[in-house]
Amino acid sequence: MASTTETGHAKNIANFQTLIEFLTGYGSSYNPSKSNLRLPALIALKDSAELALADVLSHNTIYNGRVSERQVAFSGIKIMSTRFVNAIQVSDASEGSIKEAKFHNRKLQGKRASPPKTPVNPGETATATISASQQSYDQLIQHLSGLKTVLENEPNYQPHEPELLVDTLVSTITDLQNKNLEVARTYANLSNARIARNKLLYGDEIGICETASDVKKYIKAIFGATSPEFAQIKGLEFVKIKN
């Protein structure tokens, strides 16, 4: 279902089409000197706006798909990380490697090694401590990469199970990085599409809203404020939407 905002953009275009239909009905009486108010220019602007709106909807669908794919890909990494830590603990790895592996896993899980200290001063708030929850997608990849580095540099970590091999972890990290990049790429495309749409609908002088306002002024000038022609179009709403 389209969002209220996208419906608002579509309504502006639909009202602009209605405006064009009224102007077409005026025949030769509608003859503005300003080129961007002439019917061919209005029709071209409406067509471009429709294409731009469709482009935004298309990019939004693609972006939402990539976000969902990333969410699924990241959903199992905390369990996966814990399995690797369990595996290194039952290997002949050094205590230092095991400690480092636990550190990166703890970061990935969003946990502290110990509870935060109680503020000494009653007026001191939680903002005085540094957050241990580094849970953005980039940071999760970083924590998993840290675990990978520990495992690949520990000569005594030699599991027999394919799912616990360092190569498996490397492949997972590469997949997560790619999915994260796809979200960023598709969001950039969506953002650029929105900019193009907004210029056509709401740009100064050239946008649909400004153009419709000028058309209304022209109709009011040539037919009069109390004319039936102006009554036809004055109620058509063109609302500027910021996003």
Rank of each mutant, 00 (worst) to 15 (best):
S58C: 03
T172H: 08
V183W: 04
E161C: 03
V90K: 14
L108P: 03
C209S: 10
P115Q: 04
N86G: 15
A49Q: 00
F16T: 02
K46E: 14
V239K: 15
G25N: 12
A44N: 10
L45A: 15
Q177D: 15
T129R: 13
T125W: 07
Q139S: 13
K148E: 13
D138Y: 13
P228S: 09
L53I: 03
T82E: 14
N189S: 14
G203R: 10
N64F: 01
Q142V: 10
E210Y: 10
P228D: 11
A113L: 12
N36V: 04
G146F: 09
N15V: 08
S94Q: 07
P116N: 14
Q139A: 13
Q17Y: 05
I173H: 08
K148T: 06
G25D: 08
R194H: 03
T172A: 10
S48K: 15
L53T: 00
A49H: 01
T172N: 11
T186N: 14
S191A: 13
T5F: 05
L164F: 06
A196P: 00
S97T: 08
S35F: 04
Y187H: 14
Q135K: 06
S91Y: 07
V215H: 02
E100F: 07
N60Y: 02
S145I: 07
L53E: 04
I206Q: 13
V85T: 15
E163I: 11
G96F: 13
G224N: 10
G65E: 04
L140W: 02
A212T: 04
A193L: 06
D214V: 04
S131L: 03
L39E: 02
P32K: 08
L37R: 07
A52I: 01
L165P: 01
I195F: 07
Q177H: 09
S29R: 14
K117G: 02
A2V: 08
P115M: 07
A54V: 01
K234D: 09
R106F: 05
I20K: 03
T82V: 12
D55C: 01
T18W: 00
N12I: 00
I219D: 01
L39K: 04
L19V: 07
T24W: 07
T226F: 10
L147Q: 06
Q134R: 13
K179C: 01
V150Q: 08
A52W: 00
N153V: 08
R197C: 00
T82Y: 10
M80I: 09
V183I: 05
N105Y: 03
I43E: 11
K148L: 12
K148V: 03
G123K: 09
S97D: 11
A193T: 02
V120Y: 08
G65Y: 03
L236H: 05
Y137D: 12
H104V: 00
I233L: 05
P162G: 06
T211V: 15
Q177Y: 07
G65P: 04
E152C: 01
N15M: 05
Q158L: 12
T61I: 01
E210I: 02
I206H: 12
F223H: 10
T82M: 11
P119I: 06
K102R: 13
Q89P: 06
T61G: 00
L108E: 06
N36T: 12
V85E: 06
G25H: 08
Y137A: 14
D92L: 09
A2Y: 04
V239D: 12
P40K: 08
N243V: 14
E6S: 01
V90W: 08
A44L: 11
S68D: 15
T149C: 00
N12Y: 01
T7L: 15
D167I: 11
N31A: 13
G110M: 04
